[in-house]
Write a protein that binds this DNA or RNA. Structure first.
Lengths: 221, 221
DNA sequence: ACCTGAACACCGTTCAAGT
DNA sequence: ACCTGAACACCGTTCAAGT
């Protein structure tokens, strides 16, 4: 698999793990599979990561490592927070397995994410929210960004990509064959519910949804 | 383990799986462990669920089966949507493993969830949103409700509950020992970020956050 | 219809040993 | 410092067979 015999480093391992996860799903990222791809013994990986949890943290770190929030400036916090959110979404969207990676770990353990989070906290504090409220809002923001990025990410091929398309068709048929009198809206909206989402709608409408909620609460204090 | 030798049904299996998941985390829910708890061979479960994915769907179904949305009434959609959201949160909060269960499957495959979803779609349509927008909003609502419920759920004991408390203390110390000049807010807010959340704050502020975002977008169309 | 037994092809991880 | 080999204690799942 590895022709050049690249040097085995924590970074190289995380990169290969992300490639596998993006192409075949996070479930395919296995210590043994990863080692075999890297032309090495499974145990070799334990030198660089103490266990699989640390490896996934490494994946997350490499994932958001590509994103650095702009430094603080003089614009209103709303604009800066939108910038941050959109940047995060763009970064996460580059990796189909981003959502699964983020879900499996605690964001607070990811080194490269600390700067993003601190920045977000500064903005919500500047908006007038309390400490507890800021914690809630920033966690909520991460959640929402992840969901938005995932809904429009490049198609993730569980097995072959063709099998995935098959599953989508199956699910739409399941929805459409539901009793119309019980679930009128599900039947009517089966297509949009199940198919790949329009990135533009999510980038504008989705981000608006999240940020205008925050703005509304900031305005009423 | 089982003294009464209860009849083995899909329902009994899902219930036991939820008990294990709530007490020890979803990772502890294993076909073999579950079978042993039920006093039966692992293969016996395959009669009732075709594979593990179907079992987890069964768990989700049993989870939200305890919640039925109130029938449509004449109140404004905002109030009805808030009712729905709060009901969903209360239901999910009863199970510490609810979040992990929901994350592992597609909500559209959970029978008992279809009624909830159809109801939510009706309300967003009534609010004037388009088909695509309604899909986005209802998925977003499920996500947010799950996150809110999880943040305030009964403590989930990974190993013993004591080990979990240990992890929390560790993480707070990690945050507090970060360089203050680089991450001033993380250091300052280490406690609130890492500790169990105040249910009241999440129930009011958190739900407000989500619903006021929806209301704001509805108002501007 | 409902369950068992044995087997297959995997996992993550430990521990001692090599270089 | 960095990697290997062998072993342990698990997984989910299939398939044939029992009642």
């Amino acid at each position: 698999m590895s022709t050049v015999a690249k040097k085995l480093t924590a970074r190289a391992i995380a990169e290969r793990a992300l490639e596998i996860g993006d192409a075949e799903g996070l479930d395919a990222v296995t210590i043994r599979r990863l080692a075999s791809d890297l032309g090495v013994t499974p145990m070799a990986l334990y030198w660089h990561y103490k266990n699989k949890e640390q490896l996934i943290i490494g994946m997350a770190d490499h994932l958001v490592g590509g994103f650095a929030p702009k430094p603080a400036d003089e614009r209103p916090w709303q604009e800066q927070l939108r910038d941050l959110t959109e940047g995060l979404i763009r970064t996460l969207r580059a990796h189909p397995c981003a959502k699964d990676v983020i879900e499996q770990i605690d964001a607070v353990t990811v080194p490269s994410f600390l700067a993003v989070w601190d920045h977000a906290l500064r903005l919500t504090r500047a908006a007038g929210f309390s400490v507890e409220e800021s914690c809630l809002i920033t966690q909520y923001l991460l959640h929402s960004a992840t969901a938005i990025a995932d809904a429009t990410a490049a198609q993730q091929a569980s097995p072959s990509g063709e099998a995935e398309a098959q599953r989508v068709r199956r699910k739409r048929l399941d929805l459409q064959s539901l009793p119309v009198e019980s679930y009128p809206h599900l039947v009517e909206m089966a297509g949009p519910l199940v198919e790949r989402k329009d990135p533009h709608l999510y980038d504008t409408f989705g981000v608006d949804l999240v940020l205008s909620g925050i703005a509304a609460l900031a305005a009423r204090r």
